[in-house]
Computed example of a mutant assay.
Amino acid sequence: MLQNSIHYGMHFLVIIGIAYLYDKKHWKKAYLILLATMLVDADHLLASPIFDPERCSINFHVLHSYWAWSIYTLIAIFSKNYWIRLIAIGLSFHMLTDTVDCWLQNL
């Protein structure tokens, strides 16, 4: 129960703060973009079973790999484009959230 609260709290609530810090004037639009980055979970559809509560998604699913996460982070750091950077931040934070979930699984 606590693990789910932390996981979904990070996915839905913490990103409100990220959106606000990223763009105080247009934080609602930024929040929607950050929510949309959860579409990265589409790579779960390639797994069998699609959902396994015991499986850590980090480095299991292709878009959740360390390589992909590295690319998301580099884009977040170096991109000059407002929207591309925000998407990369959202993807990187999604990976962090899933990493925390994996740590909590192993407690």
Results as ranks from 00 to 15, higher is better:
Val14Asp: 12
Val14Ala: 15
Val14Met: 14
Val14Leu: 15
Val14Ile: 15
Ile15Gly: 07
Ile15Tyr: 06
Gly17Phe: 13
Gly17Ser: 07
Ile18Trp: 12
Ile18Arg: 09
Ile18Ala: 03
Ala19Arg: 06
Ala19His: 04
Tyr20Cys: 07
Tyr20Glu: 05
Leu21Ala: 15
Leu21His: 09
Tyr22Gln: 03
Tyr22Asn: 01
Tyr22Val: 02
Tyr22Leu: 04
Tyr22Phe: 15
Asp23Val: 07
Asp23Gln: 07
Lys24Ser: 12
Lys24Pro: 00
Lys25Phe: 04
Lys25Asn: 14
Lys25Trp: 03
Trp27His: 04
Trp27Gln: 04
Lys28Gln: 10
Lys29Asp: 03
Lys29Cys: 00
Ala30Arg: 09
Ala30Tyr: 00
Ala30Lys: 06
Ala30Trp: 00
Tyr31Lys: 00
Tyr31Thr: 03
Leu32Ile: 13
Ile33Asn: 00
Leu34Asp: 01
Leu35Phe: 12
Ala36His: 04
Thr37Ser: 07
Thr37Pro: 07
Thr37Gly: 08
Met38Gly: 14
Met38Ser: 14
Met38Asp: 10
Leu39Glu: 08
Leu39Ile: 15
Val40Arg: 08
Val40Gly: 10
Asp41Asn: 09
Asp41Met: 06
Asp41Gln: 06
Asp41Leu: 05
Ala42Met: 13
Asp43Ile: 06
Asp43Cys: 09
His44Asp: 01
Leu46Pro: 01
Ala47Ser: 12
Ala47Met: 14
